[in-house]
């Protein structure tokens, strides 16, 4: 929807600042939760920010707006950064998350489309998002809409067979308005994806299933803006897979340590340290 020429350094800087805000909120919400999936929540922040604050056609005042683009967080355990993104975008007041995990809260470890405004599909169990996204893209065709469908998956989630059933269908049905993103942060709960059950070569696999594949630095706002700006137009028939190389725990040096911070609890001291680093823009890169 946006040509590269429309991008300015100001936009990039604004989105980078927004990403820092979201990372800080992620840490705070994670602390409020007691313990959470810090690593995979932090790794996908930049992609979420570019989508929600630039790319997606959405209206937070009308979360059920029929013409909106759809976004499915297939890695539902990334809720700790996703929910602050929705709140910041204006779908609900941030204070709504104050009772997270407590009886009756709309917010828990995973996301519920019936409770959280802006959530297009309830997720949590891995391998469910891409099939649903394929169905939404088919719905666009039935209903003659020009919505786009985005699906954010984890990298270890690529082990699920249902993902490849859906990848097969997306290629077969030529769902050019579908975009899958793999948050390639390299680690699952227990270690390096390539040691546990190798998913590579991911680019070649999606290409073989009939997808257009782009691999990029998932923390580079300009690279993400370019990739989403180049998304297929109406006449394009290939679904797009964006493999976003990311760092698990991105933005907090001690969390950028492989699988260590897949899930955990932060001490008060470490919370302060994490937030100071995020504000200072420290960490890798």
């Amino acid at each position: 929807m946006t040509a590269p020429a429309q991008r300015s350094d100001d936009l990039v800087r604004a989105l980078e600042a927004r990403a820092r805000e979201i990372r800080e909120q992620t840490i705070r919400l994670g602390v409020k939760s007691g313990s959470t999936h810090f690593g995979g929540s932090l790794s996908m922040v930049d992609v979420l920010v570019v989508l929600y604050f630039y790319v997606l056609r959405i209206d937070p005042q009308r979360p059920q707006w029929e013409e909106r683009d759809r976004f499915i967080l297939s890695k539902g355990h990334g809720a700790t950064s996703y929910c602050p993104v929705l709140a910041t975008a204006g779908f609900f007041p941030a204070g709504m998350m104050d009772d997270i995990n407590h009886l009756g809260s709309a917010f828990g470890m995973h996301i519920d489309m019936r409770k959280i405004p802006g959530v297009d599909m309830s997720t949590g169990s891995l391998g469910h998002g891409l099939p649903v996204a394929v169905g939404m893209a088919l719905a666009d065709r039935v209903q003659k809409k020009d919505r786009r469908v985005f699906c954010m998956m984890g990298d270890a989630e690529q082990n699920e067979g249902s993902i490849w059933e859906a990848a097969q269908a997306a290629g077969h049905f030529k769902l050019g308005r579908l975009c899958a993103i793999v948050d390639r942060n390299r680690y699952s709960s227990e270690g390096d994806t390539e040691e546990i059950l190798a998913i590579e070569p991911l680019h070649e696999k999606y290409a073989a299933f009939g997808w257009e594949v782009r691999r990029l630095d998932g923390h580079s706002i300009p690279a993400l803006l370019d990739a989403f700006a180049a998304l297929p137009t109406h006449d394009r028939t290939k679904p797009t897979a964006i493999i976003a190389d990311t760092v698990k725990g991105k933005g907090v040096s001690f969390m950028e340590a492989g699988a260590t911070w897949h899930y955990g609890a932060l001490s008060e001291e470490d919370e302060a340290k994490a937030i100071a680093e995020i504000r200072g823009g420290a960490g890798s890169r």
Binding site: M121, P131, V132, G135, A166
Partner: peptide
């Protein structure tokens, strides 16, 4: 599995 997931995507639309 994909068929039922797709059905859910259609239903959610």
């Amino acid at each position: 599995q994909n068929m039922v997931g797709c059905a859910a995507g259609l239903a959610a639309s």
